[in-house]
């Protein structure tokens, strides 16, 4: 059963990722007072790219070639292991939080390498910045996960989800504050405004995409959408496990699946509303925001050690 759930999670996340990014595009268009395309436009974009001839750039070699499958594959694997539909990990060996963090480092590593590989300065700056975003978010992210691990008594995301879902994760205030910090950290990790505009391609997150074309670009665009969805799912899995199946019966899993869909949609819509309501700031100011988030994470640690 749990293997089926894992495969289901992976397949559904990949299938739904373009839909979610289509919805956020629609919201942006509405907030800009444009009509915009419909929410299925991203599927059509990917299908078009899929049929295009691929152009490989001058200097680029095997690393660039290998990057899109590695990028998408890593996030698909993470999606399969998270406690999304159930309050337990469908594949326990994929569910450890340290494993997830370091598995997320692999696509980042290859992404940045590919950006250097293409020998262009625009792509490379994007890749290096993407790495640094990771470095700056890391302290807050890990501090929150540390608080959760101590509160739930395990580093396994399944146990964390179960502990939060049954309100056993104590102390409660620390967990709530940790959730706030984690949401903010996830928001930065998703690569949205005010730091980044994923559609302006020479910017941080999609900078290295400039060197890609055809099916590779399609795979990479899909990968970026899946990444955003996985990051949002991590928040949902750890801090909003309510409604997810407690046991492994098919009906409960189905209900958990629907609940997950609703939760993640709310999170993504909220993120896209925030994104369009803020101005854009210089990349160099990123540090201030991440330190602010780290401060909130630190606050949750303080609540944890004093036990409220």
């Amino acid at each position: 059963m749990s293997v089926i759930v894992a495969i289901l999670q992976a397949v559904l996340l990949v299938a739904a990722a373009p839909l979610v990014s289509g919805i956020t595009r629609k919201i942006r268009a509405k907030m800009h007072s444009r009509t915009g395309t419909d929410i299925f436009q991203d599927y059509r974009d990917l299908a078009k790219l899929w049929r295009r001839c691929e152009v490989r750039e001058g200097g680029s070699g095997l690393v660039s070639r290998a990057m899109p499958p590695v990028f998408l594959g890593s996030f698909v694997l993470i999606a399969a292991g998270l406690p999304l539909f159930m309050q337990a990990c469908p594949v326990p060996i994929l569910g450890d939080i340290i494993t997830i963090l370091y598995l997320m480092a692999l696509p980042r590593f290859m992404f940045a390498l590919a950006s250097i590989d293409s020998a262009g300065s625009y792509t490379a700056i994007g890749g290096v910045r993407e790495l640094l975003v990771g470095v700056l978010v890391e302290p807050a992210l890990v501090l929150v996960l540390f608080v959760m691990a101590v509160a739930a008594g395990s580093t396994n995301t399944g146990f964390m989800a179960a502990a939060t879902g049954s309100l056993q994760a104590q102390p409660l205030v620390a967990v709530v504050v940790a959730g706030v910090a984690f949401a903010m950290a996830c928001y930065i990790e998703m690569g949205k405004l005010p730091f980044d505009l994923a559609e302006a391609e020479q910017e941080i997150q999609e900078g290295p995409l400039a060197a890609y074309s055809g099916p590779s670009l399609a795979m990479l665009k899909l990968g970026v959408s899946v990444k955003q969805l996985v990051v949002a799912s991590l928040l949902v899995a750890l801090f909003l496990p309510f409604g997810a199946a407690v046991d492994a019966s098919p009906a409960a899993v189905l209900a958990g699946m629907l609940a997950y869909g609703a939760k993640v949609l709310v999170v993504m819509v909220a993120a896209s509303i925030i994104e369009n309501a803020v101005m854009r700031v210089r990349y160099k100011l990123l540090g201030r925001y991440t330190w602010f988030v780290t401060g909130i994470a630190l606050l949750s640690l303080v609540f944890l050690v004093i036990g409220i």
């Binding site: 899929w50 049929r51 295009r52 001839c53 691929e54 152009v55 490989r56 750039e57 001058g58 200097g59 290998a66 899109p68 499958p69 590695v70 998408l72 594959g73 890593s74 698909v76 694997l77 293409s118 020998a119 262009g120 300065s121 625009y122 020479q202 400039a210 060197a211 055809g214 099916p215 590779s216 399609a218 795979m219």
Partner: peptide, 27 residues
């Protein structure tokens, strides 16, 4: 998983063709 992704991508490449551009695109 990664091999599956690569195979899918490569089969699309075979269908649509590949070209090499010696010049790096620098905007």
């Amino acid at each position: 998983v990664i091999a599956a992704c690569a195979l899918v991508r490569n089969s699309a490449n075979r269908a649509a063709g590949m070209k090499d551009d010696p010049q790096t695109w620098a905007c």
